[in-house]
Amino acid sequence: MSLVSTPTPITPTPPATLTVVPARHPGRWIASAVVLVLAAQFAHGLATNPGWDWPTFTGYFFERSVLRALAVTLELTLAGAVLGFLGGVLLAAMRMSRSPILQALSWTYVWVFRSVPLIVQLLFWANLGYLYDTLQIGVPFGPGFHELSTARLVGPFGAALLGLALHEAAYAGEIVRAGLLSVDQGQLEAAAALGIPRPRQFRRIVLPQAMRAILPSAANELINLLKSTSVVYVLAIGELFYQVQVVYGRNGRVVPLLMVATVWYVLLTALLSILQFYVERRFARGALRTLPPTPVQRLRTALSRGAAR
C-alpha cells in the first residue's frame, strides 16, 4: 500500500465558466430576525403603552423650569470638567516630578478622592461650615489678615462644584498621567538635544502626542461627569434630575418626567460623542497615514456614488 495517494484528476474547465458562490450564514440571518422582532416589539410598546404618557413628556420637555435646570447641569459639567482637568494636570505633573514629597502627596490625593463616594463627599463639602466656621487668609500658624464666613464663601452650588471638581481631578490626574507615559522617551531626548526650553517641550512636543491617549478616556470621564451631576440633587440644587423630581412630586407623573431627564442626558451625551470624534480626528494628524473620512464625507461619497449609478 502506498502512503502517497494519487490525486484525483481535475477535469479541466475554462475558468470563465466557474461561478463564485459566497458561503451562506443561516445563523446570522436567524439572529438578525430575532433582534429585529424584539426591537419592533419595544418600539410598539413605546408608541402604544399609555404609561409613557407622551403628551406630558412633550409638555415638559421644553418647559422653562426644565430648561433652566438643564442650564445648571451644563454649568456644573463644564465648570467641573475645566477645574477637574486643571487639577488633573497638576496632579499628574506632581506624580511625575522627581520630588518624593510631591509624588506622595499626589498619590495620597488620588487614593483618598477615589475612595470616598461622590455623594458622601458632596455632603462633607456642604457641611464644611460645621468644621470651619470662618476661613482666614494669613500666615500659616500665624496671624490672619482677612476672614470670610464659610457659609457665604461655599454655598450649596459652591459645595457641589467643589465636590465634583475635586472628585474629577483624581480621575483626570490618572488619565493625564497615562497619556504622558505613552509618549516615547526618545521624543523628550530629541527635544532636549535640540535645546528646546522645558515648557515648550511640554506644550509643543509632549502634550499633543499625549492627547491621543488622553482623549478617549477624557471623553468617557466627561460623559460620566455629566451624569454624575444628578447626584448633586442631595444638596437641593436645581439641576435637571432634581427639577424633574420636583415636578413629579407635584403631579405624580413619575415615568414621563424621568423620560424628560433621560432624553436630555442622551442628547447631551450624543453631542459630546460627536465632539469627541472631531477632536480625536484633529489630534490623529501624523499618527495615521491617512485620516478616516468623517461621517459627512462618507455620506457625500455614498451619495455621489449613488448618483453616478
Binding site: 516615547d184 526618545g186 530629541a190 527635544a191 538635544a193 512636543i205 494628524r285 501624523g286
Partner: peptide, 13 residues
C-alpha cells in the same frame, strides 16, 4: 545630534 531611531516628532510635518 542624530539618533539611531530618528526620533522625529510624529505630529509635525
Amino acid at each position: 545630534f542624530v539618533f539611531q531611531s530618528f526620533n522625529l516628532f510624529p505630529h509635525l510635518t
